[in-house]
Computed example of a mutant assay.
Amino acid sequence: MKRTLAILLALTMAVTLLASCAQSAPAGPAPAPESVAEPAAAPETQPDAAEPAPAEKKDVVIAGIYKFADATWFINEGVAAGEKVKELGAKDWMYLDAKDDGNLFLQMVDTVIAQKVDGVICCPPDQTLSQVAVEKLEKAGIPVLAADDALIDDAGNKIAPWVGIDAYMIGQESAKWLVNYMQENNLVDDPECGIMIMTTDTVTSCIPRSEGQLDIIAEMLPDFPADHIFKTDYKMDLNVAFQSANGVIVANPQIKKWMVLTTGDEGTVGATRAIEQAGLADGSCTVGLGGYLAPAEFEKGSCFKAAAYFSALEVGRISAEHIMMMVNGEEPPKETAVSCIMVTKDNYKEAMPEYLQ
């Protein structure tokens, strides 16, 4: 009996000891707290993550949207602008061709906004789209500058900085050269001589060119018969210019010696071809504006005898300088106009090497 009680007592003590051990043991695997605690260093690194290292300077990208980006003038202007913006710190230059299409122009504005460019130089194919384009870019916080053809409001006022040519003075200079030519060749009083003024009235930058030409003719040839002065409008396109000039020539067979002033070299070349088709090249004279198509005509010996040369490279460089000023928070001049010199077959190689390639 005593032996049995001793065994029961021993069992009771063992059970009691196991129970107390079970109550002191943690629930779940013991290593768990150690594994959770291991990343305790993380809070020490969080303050550093909340304070980013100084960001590198943003790469500047400038876009140029031009109405005829495949034309010699705009190709040269775009090359000069691209080189200059990179020289001034831009990483990239985007050269875009609106193809004389207003809808495509606005699509390109949307594209450069989506690509988050830092500045835009543009020559709109349709100036009535100026306000829409400027509003889109301003809303996106992107500075915009107009080159060649101004960005204007409904009243014709410039709504963005502009770089281009002194249009009125250039028109005057081209007309002075032509009048001097007429005087030197005894054409002023020739009843077979007529003056054709080819205008581009849909482009505001072209209107002063024609105004300057007409003012000089009125000033230097006050007695020239009004019925021998002809006006015809065209757009900057060789074929359109040809058709426009040809219509005047065919309608006026009494004129055998045509003196032609235009708003751009495309108009002059188109008129030159129309005069040649009519068999009147020998007694006629056409004068260009720009000079970019003149070298080939001078080499041919056509009736394209002179041009008012103004530099596309200069316009490109200045527009690049001004857009980079705007990107850097500086304010450029509201208007910048370059001047011209008259070139002929005798001086064009020295005067305008940019067009000799």
Rank of each mutant, 00 (worst) to 15 (best):
L5H: 09
A6G: 08
L11V: 14
M13L: 13
T16V: 13
Q23T: 10
A25P: 06
P26K: 08
A27I: 10
A30G: 08
P39C: 07
A40R: 12
Q46S: 08
Q46E: 14
P47G: 03
P54C: 03
I62W: 05
I62K: 02
I62N: 01
T72I: 14
L88H: 03
A90R: 01
D92Q: 12
N103E: 10
Q107Y: 07
D118K: 01
V120Y: 05
C122V: 12
C123H: 06
E138Q: 14
A140R: 09
D149S: 14
P161A: 09
A167R: 06
S174V: 07
L187N: 04
I195W: 00
I197V: 12
T200Y: 11
C206H: 08
I207S: 03
R209F: 05
D223F: 00
V240D: 14
S244M: 00
P253G: 04
I255G: 01
T262M: 00
T263R: 02
G267S: 00
G270Q: 00
G270P: 00
T272R: 04
L280E: 03
S284Q: 04
P295S: 00
F298P: 02
E299V: 14
C303F: 02
K305I: 12
A307D: 11
F310M: 10
M326A: 08
M342E: 06
A351K: 15
A351G: 07
